[in-house]
């Protein structure tokens, strides 16, 4: 297949950036989206052009590194699929695809499609943990956990921290990401002692980083590659309210 790409090129944080068109011939339907970009980059290197910088690592949908807005949708058209797991068989010969970085003030562009997501790490630093130094834990069976709670906690814990939720949200809110961690730890008995303090600290950090407020548009869950549920935001808000009482 022959595909035309319009790719966001931006040299650095202070550069204005623009869309540049490239044509990639010989795209095979079995290629992954990133493999198609590899092919483009190999060509750009040889012609002495600057290849497109993009983040990626595991290429199996779990590290959360890949991050592209494809035709206006973070991670592209397939539901519950990261960019690296998107395959070209979903496109046809002659298609034009626009590729842009995550766009949100707290995620400044580093170069081309690469953005800085360290704000997420700082939200975790604020309280996204259970304080238990190595070697101080009691036997794992000393605290049974109801299967439902464990399963629900797991569902929230599968968040890969990619940031698609923020990129999709008209307000640039990080509520789904933050709520997922608060829910994961808050559902478990181990997470109770720090639960309210955690919710307060994480929400405050989220605001301090400049993420917008959540107005329940639900765009985040539509693009979340791991299917995190909107319920986590409700839970975050409830815990936050209780913590501020």
């Amino acid at each position: 297949m022959k595909i035309t790409l319009k790719v966001w090129r931006q040299k650095g944080p202070s550069d204005k950036g623009r869309l540049v068109s490239y044509v990639v011939d010989d795209v095979s339907p079995d290629m992954s989206f990133l493999e198609m970009l590899d092919v483009l980059n190999e060509r750009l290197i040889l012609t002495g052009d600057d290849p497109v910088a993009f983040d990626h690592d595991c290429r199996e949908g779990i590290c959360g590194m890949c991050s592209m807005v494809i035709d206006g949708t973070p991670h592209g058209p397939q539901r519950a699929t990261t960019t690296c797991q998107l395959h070209m068989r979903h496109y046809k010969d002659g298609d034009t695809i626009t590729i842009e970085p995550w766009r949100a003030a707290p995620f400044p562009v580093v170069k081309d499609l690469v953005v800085d997501r360290s704000a997420f790490d700082r939200i975790i630093q604020a309280g996204g943990f259970i304080s238990v130094p190595a070697g101080s834990a009691p036997d794992a069976h000393s605290m049974p956990v109801a299967k439902n709670d464990a399963d629900d906690a797991f569902d929230a814990a599968t968040c890969i921290g990619c940031g698609a939720c923020v990129a999709a949200c008209p307000n640039g809110s990080a509520a789904l990401f933050t709520g997922a961690k608060i829910t994961h730890l808050g559902l478990l008995p181990q997470g109770q002692p720090e639960r309210m303090a955690r919710a307060k600290a994480m929400v405050e950090q989220m605001d301090a980083e400049g993420f917008g407020g959540c107005t329940n548009t639900g765009e985040c869950v539509a693009v979340c590659p791991k299917g995190i549920s909107l319920d986590v935001i409700g839970r975050m808000n409830a815990d936050f309210l209780k913590s501020s009482k």
Partner: peptide
């Protein structure tokens, strides 16, 4: 000790209906 440590940190391992 690893399992104890991970569980105390909140790692959501698979559980049975009895909670174990």
């Amino acid at each position: 000790n690893i399992i104890d440590q991970a569980v105390a940190q909140g790692v959501p391992f698979a559980r049975e209906y009895g909670g174990l």
